[in-house]
């Protein structure tokens, strides 16, 4: 190992010496980008163990909502990505919003943002026991199917009541497996990042939209549609994942 460091240091010295001959380059300019995402139910901020009326005459209540957001990138003018964050686990147990700010982003024009819902096959193949306890991919996060060596992309547990009758039924939607990874791209709000400026990008995910998607309602109160661990009932998991992906909107 020592010899690698040694080579690197010597190489850097050589490079430094070689590059000192030119004139001064213009000062590069950098700004910051904030990414916000808020989970909602019919327009209200989500909270656990609290009943929310939906706009279809039913109501829902949540125990947990978590998902992996990966490969968050700015879209540059040539459509290449400027990576902001490889992966994070968004957990809405204690707060309705997730927010993170990235600094030292090159100033310039950007067409928008893109990110993945879940993990692509290369991230999904990683070994959770190799990550430290605070890493989002750690085996301590409880977002892993050890029987298939795959991460759980989305975990939603809660209760549904279709007609305010007072009786809730449990729903559980746990989605994963490589084919349920969804890439989302948002280009409706291009922006210019100026030097030392912060651009705030805000997104929301409303469960009204997830369950009452106009082209595919998922009957979260119905015993035939209120449970999936993906394998065994893959079509429901696929529908749920598609609806979650479609419900994520830039504000």
């Amino acid at each position: 190992m020592k010899n690698i460091y040694f080579t690197i240091i010597i190489s850097l010295l050589v490079l430094l010496a070689a590059s000192c001959g030119g004139g001064p380059d213009p000062e590069p300019e950098y700004g910051s980008v904030t990414f916000n995402l808020t989970a909602k139910v019919a327009g209200q901020d989500i909270a656990m163990n609290q009943s929310f009326n939906d706009q279809a005459g039913g109501r829902m209540k949540f125990d947990q909502f978590k998902f992996y957001l990966s490969r968050l990138e700015l879209i540059q003018e040539d459509n290449s990505g400027y990576p902001l964050q490889l992966v994070d686990l968004l957990d809405f147990s204690s707060a309705p919003s997730y927010s993170v700010t990235f600094h030292n982003i090159p100033a310039g024009n950007y067409k928008g943002l893109r990110f993945g819902l879940g993990l692509d096959d290369s991230l999904n193949a990683l070994d959770p026991s190799t990550f430290g306890s605070s890493h989002p991919l750690s085996s301590l996060t409880n977002m892993y199917w050890s029987w298939s060596s795959k991460y759980i992309f989305v975990k939603l547990d809660g209760y549904g009541d279709s007609d305010l009758s007072g009786s809730f039924t449990t729903f559980i939607y746990h989605t994963g497996l490589d084919s349920l990874y969804r890439e989302l791209s948002f280009t409706d709000q291009p922006f210019t990042l100026a030097n030392e400026q912060t651009v705030v990008t805000s997104f929301s995910l409303d469960f009204q939209d997830v369950f009452y998607n106009p082209s595919d309602t998922i009957r979260f109160w119905d015993v035939n549609e209120n449970f999936t661990h993906t394998t065994g009932d893959f079509p429901l998991a696929q529908r749920f994942q598609n609806n979650v992906a479609a419900a994520i909107k830039q504000n």
Binding site: D127, Y144, S146, S149
Partner: peptide, 13 residues
């Protein structure tokens, strides 16, 4: 479903 002996440990636990 499990590709390595190391990952297999996670399953029964």
């Amino acid at each position: 479903g499990v590709p390595t002996l190391e990952l297999q440990v996670l399953a029964p636990v």
